[in-house]
Design a protein around this nucleic acid. Structure first.
Lengths: 145, 145
DNA sequence: ACAAAAAAAGATATTAAACTCTTTTATTTT
DNA sequence: AAAATAAAAGAGTTTAATATCTTTTTTTGT
């Protein structure tokens, strides 16, 4: 579905959304730990997301990553687009470049419906929503306690 | 969604399903041409599918790939499982190994529905169905004429 | 039996994704 | 101002996916 890089990105963003706020900023080590991601790798990813203005960052002591209200309105979709590009929106299941409504591959019409739902899902879940969800204790982000 | 290898596999299998039958067997060159796939690569893939009994093959003059009735009942799902494994059935969107009903990731419940539909789609489309579909001329498999 | 055709098998090459290490820059605390 | 902290940036490595090339085996038609 998503690249591994993208999975790390999503987990990290959700993690910071939950942690930051009162607690201030979240460092890369804490992010790596809290999401089971390789530290240097997730650092690169966060760097990129920061450059693309999907998250804020600050260097130096007490530095780290954090969100302003505006960025908490970003959806999963925004992160996916930043990392994996638009492929989920545009790609044919069979990989046909020319697949379209007028020129459909054999599964086009059926997949269309699923894709619609998938896109709805990623566009209607914001980082802010996750903050609430995770605080409820009903969801988790890490492989073990 | 699926690996590129799997996309090639699906296209090739659908292609042969359509071509074979009356016409006898379909050679690897024809398959490569008819599905825009690299010849040697698709050859490897077909070899594997043949070994896994999802398609028949015959060497020598007039040899090639073909289906018996039994194999035409195989679904997309069977091919996907043979090539990409069970990941589409088992994997969490966020890549969490421990994600489950009891321990859901933040998008688990929403993704569950989508996954259900996706699995339904790949399990209920057989190669035989595609044969009919493609013969109708309403669907296509190749990037250009 | 022999030559030709075509897939099977084995081996190698290329590319892209995933991951790591080192150095630099910005910020803060003392 | 100096030392410490933490992200940014740059460069490199490893691994897995994708792709190609070569040789072998099977089958068929002459």
């Amino acid at each position: 579905m998503f690249s591994k890089t993208c999975e790390y990105a999503l987990k990290a963003m959700i993690f910071v959304a939950q942690k930051s706020g009162e607690n201030g900023r979240v460092g890369i080590k804490e992010i790596a730990q809290g999401t089971d991601a390789p530290e240097h790798f997730i650092a690169k990813i966060m760097q990129e997301l920061s450059r693309k203005k999907l998250i804020q960052s600050m260097k130096g002591p007490n530095g780290g990553f954090y969100f302003s209200e505006r960025e908490l309105n970003a959806s999963i979709s925004d992160i996916v687009k930043a990392v994996d590009g638009e492929s989920i929106y545009t790609d044919c299941v069979l990989g046909l470049k020319a697949c379209s409504e007028k020129n459909p591959c054999p599964v086009h019409h059926e997949y269309k419906e699923i894709k619609r739902k998938l896109i709805h899902m990623i566009e209607h879940n914001t980082l802010g929503d996750f903050k609430v969800k995770l605080d409820s204790g009903e969801f988790f982000l890490k492989n073990q306690g």
